[in-house]
Amino acid sequence: MSLSPEQVRQVAHLARLQLNPEQVEPYARQLTDILGMVDRLSAADTAGVSPMAHPLDMVQRLRPDVISEADRRDDYQAIAPETQDGLYLVPKVIE
């Protein structure tokens, strides 16, 4: 499986990464190498094997439905790049 520069650009767009034009070529080569290594998986016989999402054979624990968080907006927004009137600011969202 090889990845073309165009595919690299598509994946970068999906992942919202701005790539410098000169990065695209080396990334395409490196990602192709990595996928080449990963392609060894296709040879494994996994017929009838159930996928393993997690090492733990446990089930989800449930927490009681209680409010345990106080309002700490000022603390949380102290590290925000841009806020106004308690809102996080972003460039205008066009729906």
């Binding site: 809102l87 600011l89 972003v90 205008k92």
Partner: peptide
């Protein structure tokens, strides 16, 4: 969106 020019606010 209301009350902002070039921005949107996120709640």
């Amino acid at each position: 969106h209301e009350g902002f020019q070039k921005s949107s606010g996120i709640d």
